[in-house]
Design a protein around this nucleic acid. Sequence first.
DNA 1: ATATAATATAACCAATCTAGTTATTTATAA
DNA 2: TTATAAATAACTAGATTGGTTATATTATAT
Lengths: 137, 137
Amino acid sequence: MITKKAEYAIIILAELASHPEGTVITSKEIARNRAIPSNLVVQLLAVLKEAGWTTGTRGPAGGIRLLIDPSEINLRQVVEKIDGPIGITRCLFSETPCQNKTHCSLRGIWARAQQNMLSVLEEVSIKDLAEKAAKDW
Amino acid sequence: MITKKAEYAIIILAELASHPEGTVITSKEIARNRAIPSNLVVQLLAVLKEAGWTTGTRGPAGGIRLLIDPSEINLRQVVEKIDGPIGITRCLFSETPCQNKTHCSLRGIWARAQQNMLSVLEEVSIKDLAEKAAKDW
DNA sequence: ATATAATATAACCAATCTAGTTATTTATAA
DNA sequence: TTATAAATAACTAGATTGGTTATATTATAT
């Protein structure tokens, strides 16, 4: 399952993308604006920073800003950065097909189902989402 | 995530479908043939029976047999019977969109991604799988 | 200089889920 | 009546999830 943390991370990036380029916003503001537990925002920002997507400046008047063009990052990338590799079944996490019966017929079906799902997430960028959200909200 | 139990249930049904109609096979044989823990087979058969897909006769010469045409049941049905409703995110389990910000833009994307995945599982029947397995194995 | 506002890092935790195991009961063919 | 098989129910260790708590570090406004 795609965790709530991954969903939060996407929302954090979308929030950042919705602010003018170059400006900063504090992690507490992000938490307040998007109703995410403040400590979780901090925790997730550490991972987003590690990915090279955000950066923060400390001290008064400090805050977080995007380092990347939000059209360059898609939802699959964010989910995988937070949750690790995606697998709709345990089977798909193992490198090799199960050797029980030479070859597992199910594996190909799971892989196809999963790829169908992932392609949707790959098609949607943080920018797309931020724009969609701006319209809806 | 689709659990191993759901995967086992599918494999059990495929195993049953691979035997001549009307004949029975014991749960232990299923377990042995497919390398599934024997106790789990028993546990899963209880659910498959509840669904009306299998039936068992007790005692010596007893065993399990299919009650339905294996082309009439698809992988999504089995997964949902064993695991309950499928949701690639927690969000999709709640009936209503989150009310935080009027309407969650992500929800529609998750739903589309999930439906893309489910459509693959809906297209494959137990019969398809059993035939595919017979070829591969 | 120094208090303060902010990011950053790490460790911890309760609740739930997963993939089983164990034990007992019931039905039936020989 | 006994061995064999399904059926039912309860239990369990380990992992995962969605957080919380505590502490350290840094930059800047005054």
